[in-house]
């Protein structure tokens, strides 16, 4: 799943770099070459990458929680297995991304602490609650749909380990969106209660899904640099438009209504016009004031704290065994 671009209004700090090395680096990236961990890279590139990859990883991990909320209540055995496998996949994707970020010299524990302290961000979308089973459908369909839109181009991102992680992630996630849409399809042709549930989920998840693409381009000052560095391959607004254009017909096909009275096909542009995202709400959720932000961080903190003795025990056990082996030799 995708991380919201939260570079916001903060301009990346400028560090003086050797102009020759910088020029060579820029040329390599412009030439669509891959940058590998030991290659020279500008400090700002390293920092931007660690931030983006760790945010992405955190989003996967926190993203396990809203859907995990329904594993124990999945309505049948097939759905239970699918949902469990999907949420497990998110964990795996977090793992791949942390590992990719670790190649730049930041440990997973450091990144975890940054998450728990509130210093690091994760996608705003996961700070909304999953209230009914239809939310599981809506998340797969909309949230994973939005994620895919952003992740597919990232398979060609300039940083090798990130690109390789994204290739694996995209391959694995190919079923995520489909299973979500399938849930919605079933609900939409189900009982009146199920239809109501599906429409309600779309109503609640639509706007937060549009927020996943990040602030509007004119308020995303680092976009140009990130695009030049191939850390990002499309602008926020381009992706948002693409998402709306693809998703609206999918909603119509199953008889659901997108909750936007300004939504209208624009023949001239060959695209949908749509209403303004509530950027004030977005900013608040980025600040950590999302509806269930406290619950999400509390759950991660609890897992981290409750697991401390386990991690420590395993480490001490291995140390004992290693020492015993040395003593025996």
């Amino acid at each position: 799943m995708y991380t919201t671009d939260m570079s916001g209004n903060k301009k990346a700090e400028v560090v003086a770099e050797d102009p020759e090395e910088l020029a060579a680096f820029e040329a390599r990236v412009a030439n669509d070459e891959f940058i590998e961990p030991k290659d020279w890279m500008p400090e700002a590139y390293r920092k931007t990458l660690v931030r983006q990859m760790s945010q992405h990883a955190h989003s996967e991990i926190v993203g396990m929680l809203p859907e995990g909320n329904w594993i124990s209540r999945a309505p049948n055995l097939r759905r239970k297995a699918i949902l469990l496998a999907k949420v497990q996949d998110e964990g795996g994707h977090g793992l791949y991304l942390y590992a990719a970020a670790e190649t730049l010299g930041t440990s997973r524990d450091e990144m975890t602490e940054a998450l728990l302290s509130g210093k690091a961000k994760y996608s705003t979308i996961f700070n909304y609650p999953t209230l009914t089973w239809a939310d599981i459908g809506a998340i797969g369909w909309l949230v994973d749909g939005a994620a895919i839109m952003n992740q597919v181009p990232l398979q060609r991102t300039s940083y090798g380990p990130y690109a390789r992680a994204m290739v694996r992630i995209c391959k694995e996630e190919s079923f995520h969106q489909r299973q979500g849409y399938e849930i919605m399809m079933h609900l939409a042709v189900g009982t009146p209660e199920q239809k109501r549930m599906a429409q309600d989920a779309l109503n609640r998840w639509w706007w937060p899904s549009l927020m996943m693409f990040g602030p509007p381009d004119e308020k995303s000052p680092n976009t140009a640099q990130s695009m030049r560095w191939r850390i990002k391959r499309d602008t926020n607004d381009e992706l948002r438009q693409k998402f709306v254009d693809i998703t609206v017909p999918q909603a119509e096909a199953i008889g659901l209504t997108v909750p936007d009275d300004k939504l209208k096909w624009n023949e001239e542009r060959g695209a949908y016009d749509f209403g303004e995202v509530d950027w004030e709400e977005f900013a608040a959720v980025v600040r950590g004031e999302g509806p269930v932000a406290k619950e999400r961080l509390q759950a991660r903190q609890k897992a981290w704290d409750d697991g401390a003795w386990v991690r420590e025990a395993a480490r001490v056990h291995a140390e004992k065994r290693a020492n015993a082996k040395v003593a025996a030799e």
Binding site: L95, Y96, A99, E102, R108, R164, A165, R168, A314, R315, H317, A318, R321, A322
Partner: peptide, 12 residues
């Protein structure tokens, strides 16, 4: 090469 994991020893 597929990726990485964290573990305390070879078995894990």
């Amino acid at each position: 090469h597929a990726g990485s994991v964290h573990a305390v020893d070879a078995k894990m």
